[in-house]
């Protein structure tokens, strides 16, 4: 068995025994379950309103009634995906951080380095271990999400829905791995654990919350409750032609948003799950073609942070300090 496999297996073993890990997985699963229940209850209320509206109409008026609200089961997971992108990223950082801080504070990293094993192998082993851990966690959350849709959400899923969900969760796996690798990089390199946490939390804050928030603020349609164009009574076709006159502003706004891996992941996941109206019920190939660049960007960013972490492993100080 190679050194990398040994480290990866040890990482998985530690995770299985960790109470912190159990707490995080339970919390994420519960948050997703609650979000499906909330979305399903909201839809139920919408249906009640619609039925009340229908019963108030005469048989003749019913012929021209508004269309019945339709439930697309995967859209019930919208908040669940948002939890993964916000809290999942925070937990991924915490898990990556703990994976290194544990070794440093116990002094086991120094013991490891006294053996015929390189820092590069240790870090690679940890990355593979974390990838396996996230894959298992997400498989559990995938099952919890499907269960929540079928039971709490009273939705029905076809084979294509399972495939869409799988793609969204593979994307989540890579996205969360990005944050765990980032945590490994700064925790193995920084002198103080508190500084590593601060740098990590500040980065999380900026990438996950601030950049998407500024992007949303700059979206003109978000400035008025119910949407600017809807409030002015503008048709969708006119909206597109009007916005084309403000292309530069939109390019700036979009440019800012795509600097955040969180926003990239959100766009891809929402498109595959049909949360974004434009891609609801669109074929997988259509969505993949439309979001090919975003998918590539998520992969490149994750590989890049992995490469930088490997380069950090060459530094003399990396993993060497016992604790601080």
């Amino acid at each position: 068995m190679s050194n990398i496999t040994v480290i990866a297996r040890k990482e998985i073993g530690d995770a299985i025994r960790s109470r912190q890990m159990l707490l995080l997985v339970t919390f994420l699963s519960l948050a997703i379950l609650i979000s499906v229940w909330v979305a399903s209850a909201s839809f139920g209320l919408k249906m009640t309103d619609y039925n009340a509206y229908l019963s108030a109409l005469t048989p003749q008026q019913r012929l021209q009634a508004l269309t019945r609200p339709q439930l697309f089961p995967l859209t019930l997971l919208r908040s669940g995906i948002e939890y993964l992108e916000i809290l999942g990223a925070l937990f991924a950082f915490i898990i990556g951080f703990t994976s290194i801080s544990r070794e440093r504070s116990r002094g086991t990293s120094l013991l490891l380095l006294s053996r015929p094993i390189t820092k590069r192998e240790i870090i690679l082993g940890k990355i593979f271990g974390l990838f396996a851990i996230w894959s298992v966690i997400l498989a559990i959350i995938y099952a919890a999400s499907v269960g929540a849709i079928l039971t709490v959400g009273h939705g029905q899923l076809g084979a294509i829905d399972y495939a869409r969900l799988l793609i969204a969760f593979v994307g989540a796996d890579i996205y969360l791995l990005f944050w765990s690798i980032f945590a490994i990089a700064i925790t193995s390199r920084m002198k103080q654990f508190a500084s590593a946490i601060l740098v990590g939390i500040t980065s999380w804050l900026v990438v996950v919350l601030v950049i998407p928030q500024i992007g949303d603020t700059m979206d003109p349609d978000n400035q008025v409750p119910g949407g600017l164009f809807a409030s002015l009574g503008i048709l969708k076709s006119n909206e597109i032609s009007i916005l084309s006159h403000f292309h530069t502003f939109d390019v700036l706004r979009n440019g800012l948003e795509v600097t955040s891996i969180t926003k990239l992941f959100e766009r891809v996941a929402f498109a595959f799950l049909g949360v974004k109206d434009k891609y609801n019920q669109a074929s997988l190939s259509t969505v993949a073609r439309a979001f090919g660049t975003s998918i590539a960007a998520i992969l490149i960013l994750t590989i890049l942070v992995g490469v930088i972490t490997m380069m950090i492993s060459k530094n003399e100080e990396t993993l060497k300090r016992r604790s601080s």
Partner: peptide, 27 residues
């Protein structure tokens, strides 16, 4: 994020809005 979502049915990302979430019914 979690408490307001349960009470107001607002999506977590929508809670990044500076105006407060309005309850739309969660059952």
């Amino acid at each position: 994020f979690t408490v307001p979502q349960i009470i107001t049915s607002t999506h977590p990302v929508a809670l990044l809005n500076p105006t407060p979430a309005i309850a739309t019914g969660t059952g």
